[in-house]
Design a protein around this nucleic acid. Structure first.
Length: 425
RNA sequence: GGAGAGUUGGCCGAGUGGUAAGGCAGCGGCUUGCUAAGCCGUGGUCGGGGUCACACCCGCGCGCGUUCGAUCCGCGCACUCUCCGCCA
């Protein structure tokens, strides 16, 4: 959530942010009046409660008629206090509900517009010219079959649409990618983490995923638990309700977990293969740092993502995502899209967001610096989302005979293997 | 799944239906002097709300109830621990 003080002082800035996101602007005024009501009802309660407490202290000392009169007064007061408390709570709840429904303030540097209005920051590497090489590239589904690496048919049989098995070398490929990602992250100073995939509502809501993204979240009503769509959730909530010492920042975590997504509203999109699936594994970077450092840290996260894709020798581009396409928590977001030869376009493989103080306020995570306590910034970035990275590797590094060359940096994690050969039929 | 115990300030730990002992640590001072120790004082020294700043209000895990008044009594919930059962 955003700073209520900022909202009072500069509501136009908040309105402008909501507008470029394409979200409700009226909520700003509703919140301002709810906040006003909360403050006035709060001080009314304070006064009554103060009187009640001072009178209450007199009760045990009072005697006879004096005591009877006093008890009558305090009894009346008790009813007034109760009413004032109820009003205060109602106003608080309303203000809090509205505040939590407000998206993060957009970074003024982010491009304005919808999904198509991103700005391409750079293109790295050159897509291969398969025509010049004299063969038609196979898509990852076909390659997955030839190599015995991916089984989507049995995935559907057992688990339904958008499900898959990674088999043989495919399974090993996942483990290799995860290990390579963790090796890079720990070398950069991240703490490796294996996180819960099942979290309580406070964690899910605190991270901002129960707003516009709620329809993509799996919920287990009997347990009141959510399945996370990214380890960003358990990593952000790791320090929930804590005050971190400024001296220990930045705290950098690399979390590995399964990720679950309902993919509601994506019927017909990417139905083939493993581009869009209900369950996958991912290594996610997550950082707690000071608000002043957040922007520079965001660039560092982007660089670590690039380092990883560079090591995999994949052609990609970096885009600056437009205001209307940001998640509610993000002030700014950079996506990296890898080139997918058989689709003839770039597809998202990683994403890094600067969520500024939005999540830390919701999760009540603060930093203490020179005795002062204030919110801190959180950032997240994908190091490797396994299925899409496998798609990119298979398609970009395939050869005419259906084999796939293993990028050199990945070989040590794949038992030294340099080529993945088709399995004999 | 069953039974029981617990949750108090940065940490430990008492406690009572009427403004939360004590200790450690902290902070201020003093003494002796240095792999530090002792004495005195301070004291919710923390977090939230509120104010120009004070005042003031809220916080004894959370919520609801009883009461003029709840940390204390009742109900519900969360979490931790112990034992039993089951189990990768």
């Amino acid at each position: 959530m955003i700073d209520l003080r900022l909202l009072r002082e500069d509501p136009d800035r908040v309105r402008a942010s909501q507008r470029v996101r394409g979200e409700d602007v009226d909520i700003v005024d509703a919140l301002l009046s709810a906040d006003e009501r909360r403050r006035s009802s709060g001080s009314r309660f304070d006064e009554l409660r103060n009187e009640q407490k001072s009178l209450g202290k007199l009760v045990p000392k009072a005697q006879g008629e004096e005591k009877v009169a006093l008890l009558q007064r305090t009894k009346d007061l008790a009813a007034a206090v109760k009413a004032a408390d109820a009003e205060q709570n109602e106003a608080k709840e309303e203000a809090d509900r509205l505040l939590r429904s407000l998206a993060n303030l957009i970074d003024p540097a982010a491009p304005v517009g919808g999904e198509e209005d991103f700005v391409t920051l750079e293109e790295i590497g050159t897509p291969r010219d398969f025509a010049a090489e004299g063969f038609e590239p196979r898509d990852h589904v076909e390659l997955g079959q030839i190599l015995g690496a991916i089984d989507t048919e049995r995935g559907a049989k057992v688990a339904g649409a958008r499900s898959y098995y990674l088999t043989g070398v495919g399974a090993l490929l996942e483990l290799a990618l995860v290990n390579m990602a963790m090796a890079q992250a720990t070398a950069a100073g991240f703490t490796a983490m294996i996180t819960p995939a099942l979290v309580r509502p406070a964690a899910m809501d605190g991270t901002g995923f129960l707003g516009q993204a709620a329809e993509n979240v799996y919920y287990l009503p009997e347990e009141e638990r959510y399945l996370v769509g990214t380890s960003e959730v358990p990593l952000a909530a790791y320090h929930m309700d804590e005050i971190l010492d400024a001296g220990q920042l930045p705290l950098r975590y690399a979390g590995f977990s399964s990720c679950f997504r309902r993919e509601a509203g994506t019927y017909g999109k990417d139905t083939r293969g493993i581009i869009r699936v209900h369950q996958f594994e991912k290594v996610e970077m997550f950082v707690f740092t000071s608000p002043e450092e957040a922007e520079a840290e965001h660039r560092r996260l982007l660089q670590w993502e690039k380092d990883f894709l560079n090591a995999l020798e994949l052609p990609y581009r970096v885009i600056d995502v437009a205001s209307g396409d940001l998640g509610s928590s993000a002030a700014r977001k950079f996506d990296i899209e890898a080139w997918i030869p058989t689709q003839g376009k770039y597809r998202e493989v990683t994403s890094t967001s600067n969520t500024t103080e939005y999540q830390s306020r919701r999760l009540s995570i603060r930093m203490r610096e020179e005795g002062k306590v204030r919110p801190l910034a959180t950032l997240n970035g994908t190091l490797v989302a396994v299925p899409r990275t496998i798609v990119a590797i298979l398609e970009n590094h395939q050869q005419a005979d259906g084999s796939v060359v293993v990028p050199e940096a990945l070989r040590p994690f794949l038992g030294g293997r340099s080529v993945i050969e088709p399995v004999a039929k």
